[in-house]
């Protein structure tokens, strides 16, 4: 039992993050988001609300986007986790990261990791979305800076980059997202 003056039992937790095994010893209540950020020092995953609404903490669990603030670290054993750090590096950005940079899909960058993980998984299953589908796909993540328009554009651009990954990236779509997302 735990009480005010009894230290909590600790659990050794080994997880695989971005293909690397990490081990840390934490109490059962350690949120997976805190575990990644503070126990493993993988601070790319951000925490915006801690009640599952904003999506900033979204990571991929066995490839599927989930809120890392709505899981405990002890529940992540035996799962393959992917965070924004695992989707590319400055010198070798992943397609979604590259698209965000090209399309001004971010401003302060705080919500961005959650969008990038979400969109990466989305494009795996929907490699060629329409603008409307792209907007729908990002509608579970909050951003306070961009107004989303350039994130929609980034989704479409990332789809292009993925499609032509073997051919070399095509030039940036110069038209506004308007080309794909016309007003009714």
């Amino acid at each position: 039992m735990t009480g005010p003056d009894v230290p909590e039992p600790l659990h050794e937790v080994t997880v695989s993050v971005n293909g690397v095994r990490h081990t840390a010893t934490v109490p059962a209540r350690r949120l997976l988001s805190d575990f990644l950020r503070h126990d493993l020092a993988l601070t790319g995953t951000h925490v915006g609300c801690e009640h599952g609404v904003c999506g900033a903490c979204t990571i991929l669990v066995d490839g599927a986007p989930m809120r890392s603030c709505l899981m405990f670290a002890v529940q992540a054993r035996a799962h393959e986790l992917t965070t924004v750090e695992g989707l590319g590096t400055i010198d070798a950005m992943g397609p979604v990261q590259q698209a965000f940079s090209e399309c001004h899909g971010l401003q302060c960058g705080f919500c961005t990791p959650g969008f990038i993980t979400t969109i990466t998984a989305y494009l795996e299953e929907n490699p060629d979305p329409t603008a409307e589908e792209a907007r729908d796909a990002i509608s579970g993540n909050l951003c306070r800076c961009t107004g989303y328009q350039n994130i929609v554009k980034s989704v479409l651009r990332a789809a292009e980059i993925r499609a032509s990954a073997d051919l070399g990236a095509p030039p940036l779509i110069d038209a506004d997202a308007r080309a794909g997302e016309a007003p009714p």
């Binding site: 009640h51 599952g52 709505l70 405990f72 002890v74 529940q75």
Partner: peptide
Amino acid sequence: GQSLIPILSMRLASPEHLIDIN
């Protein structure tokens, strides 16, 4: 846990035991 964990994080509930059936 998608409804339960926010309730726990806000400390609107503090059960002593969680039976994790995953």
